[in-house]
């Protein structure tokens, strides 16, 4: 479904990605793990069109989207839930969700999707008229995921959904992520919480200083001495 080949991305003169290649198949939950500054978020931003690579190609459903505008990419079915939640704090929860559907203009469908998102995150139903900034961290993360789902994506890019959340809330968020996978969504997940990521994913890529250094199934990686030492703290 998604295929990335030899991606090189720079911030000015600083190299963030140094020739990354990987792929995500339909229905898979693929996790991208690695430490701070390894290039995980950069990879997601490049896929969703927020960054332009200097070299390399992003293929989505066999079409080259490397230089497609971000709004077109959302319309094609890729939704990016950015790191740090980044909900619109001054707008209400309802408005945040509506903005998620901005690439689709069918009114009736939107109501159905809104119901579906609210059934995933019942707490948001109570907060619909509240401004996004008054929500707790966990609720904001749910809102951010909900907002990303409102565009009815085929491929969901999740950037650090566990960031800064209490363990119980993280557990809840990951339950939802598994549920989404069961409903047939393809998910590319970026995580620093390696335990959770390994538990949820079908396949894992390890990224270090802008390069993929390891890949495999969660089971293989759990017993890899390098992963154990660097990421699982054993």
């Amino acid at each position: 479904m998604l295929k990335i080949a030899d991606l090189h991305v720079y911030y000015g003169s600083i190299r963030a990605l140094n020739g990354i290649s990987f792929q995500v198949n339909e229905g898979e939950l693929v996790a991208l793990i690695g430490s701070n500054g390894a290039g995980k978020s950069t990879t997601l931003k490049t896929i969703s069109g927020l960054l332009r690579p200097r070299q390399g190609i992003v293929l989505y459903e066999d079409a080259d989207i490397t230089r497609t505008a971000p709004d077109r990419i959302v319309a094609l079915g890729i939704s990016h839930c950015p790191e740090g939640r980044r909900i619109f704090g001054g707008l209400t929860v309802r408005e945040n969700l509506r903005l998620g559907a901005v690439q689709r203009r069918q009114g009736a469908d939107m109501a159905a999707d809104m119901d579906w998102v609210l059934s995933l995150f019942p707490i948001l139903k109570e907060r619909l008229s509240q401004s996004g900034g008054t929500l707790s961290g966990g609720e904001q993360q749910m809102l951010a995921i909900g907002r990303a789902l409102m565009s009815r994506p085929k491929l969901l890019l999740l950037d650090e959904p566990s960031l800064g959340l209490a363990p119980l809330v993280v557990e809840h968020i990951f339950q939802i992520i598994r549920q989404l996978k069961q409903q047939g969504k393809t998910i590319l997940l970026v995580e620093q919480n390696v335990h959770q990521a390994l538990d949820a994913a079908d396949r894992v890529y390890v990224i270090e200083t802008g390069q993929i250094t390891l890949t495999g199934t969660p089971d293989e990686l759990k017993h890899n001495p390098q992963v154990e030492q660097s990421y699982l703290g054993r």
């Binding site: 709004d71 959302v74 950015p82 980044r86 001054g90 903005l99 990303a148 409102m150």
Partner: peptide
């Protein structure tokens, strides 16, 4: 209007606005 929401959204967070598909 929807345009007004788009204006407010891109003012609050341009990156997030792009990520949800707002030009």
């Amino acid at each position: 209007s929807a345009y007004g929401r788009a204006m407010l959204a891109q003012r609050e967070d341009a990156l997030a606005a792009q990520a949800v598909g707002l030009a």
